[in-house]
């Protein structure tokens, strides 16, 4: 952590960490503690009166069927997005790992959606599925599916899941392929000499050995689906129709900024914070466990 050879105490190190620490205090820790505090208050929309109510906001949330629905919806959304994005990336990476000629070209063509902003991704997908104009809506209509994500909650959910997974494939692909390529070649060769064909090698050698990466990606993807998809949902459905795509983050934003229910929104923030902390802890525990080759 600290170098064996280092500089002694002076004012300098304080000056060096100051910018980071000040920003952390002012824009992270103070607001987070405010959120904690506000979560214990009930305040009217105009800020005229406030009342300290202990955990009433949380009890309200716990008793609130709508909040529970949001929770379930978020879980479903995250698992589906992570599942689709990881499974497709894994398949693509496994295939790309086999290919020697042209591997870089494939990689290049697969990774760029990482750079597309969530809102922009949302705009692309909402355009393709626009109920009156969209090319897919049109195609679906021909085969007899009536597509209107502005009316059908299921269709809206499908659309945000697709858009969110689409954007995340690139990231997962890069990590999977890096993990596969860091497996020593001689292991694969030893397995081939042992008589394992490509499919068997994938399931008995490659897949078990990239488990740490898979777990890491699982956490990253869940975090992504929880937080970074805000832009996609905001662009595609605004949480609708009838809250069918309102996930936790969106609800915090909606209740706080649009509905001006400060205490409720703050209580939700605190719950989200706990989720992030849990995910971060899991992530850091797993990164410690790396596979040791020989």
């Amino acid at each position: 952590m600290l170098k064996r050879v280092h500089f002694g105490t002076s004012i300098l190190p304080f000056l060096l960490v100051a910018p980071q620490i000040i920003i952390t205090l002012v824009f992270f820790i103070w607001p987070a503690s405010q959120a904690l505090y506000q979560s214990l208050l009930i305040e009217d929309a105009f800020g005229l009166s406030r009342e300290f109510v202990w955990f009433e906001n949380f009890i309200d949330l716990a008793g609130n069927g709508l909040y529970f629905d949001t929770f379930r919806r978020t879980a479903f959304f995250s698992v589906t997005v992570a599942g689709i994005a990881m499974a497709s990336a894994l398949v693509l990476a496994a295939m790309a790992d086999r290919i020697i000629k042209g591997a870089l070209t494939y990689r290049t063509l697969l990774i760029w959606p990482y750079a597309v902003a969530p809102v922009v991704a949302g705009a692309l997908w909402v355009f393709m599925f626009d109920p009156t104009l969209g090319i897919f809506a049109y195609a679906l209509n021909i085969i007899g599916v009536d597509w209107n994500h502005k009316l059908s909650g299921d269709q809206a959910m499908a659309l945000v899941v697709m858009a969110s997974a689409w954007k995340q494939i690139a990231y997962n692909f890069l990590f999977f392929i890096a993990a596969m390529q860091s497996i020593p070649k001689s292991l694969i060769e030893a397995a081939a000499i042992d008589g394992a064909g490509p499919v068997k090698r994938f399931f008995t050698i490659i897949f078990p050995l990239i488990t740490p990466t898979t777990f890491f990606l699982l956490v990253v993807n869940v975090v992504y689906a929880f937080f970074d998809t805000f832009g996609i949902i905001h662009a595609v459905t605004q949480g609708g129709p009838a809250k069918a795509t309102e996930i936790l983050v969106y609800k915090v934003f909606n209740d706080g900024f649009v509905g001006l229910d400060l205490g409720g929104s703050a209580a939700q923030s605190v719950i989200l914070m706990i989720i992030v902390i849990a995910l971060t802890v899991i992530q850091f525990r797993y990164i410690e466990k790396k596979v040791e080759y020989s």
């Binding site: 001689s186 292991l187 397995a191 488990t211 080759y293 020989s294």
Partner: peptide, 10 residues
């Protein structure tokens, strides 16, 4: 027999 043994670590 490989130089780095190539034992399956798992």
């Amino acid at each position: 027999v490989f130089q780095n043994y190539a034992l399956y670590p798992h």
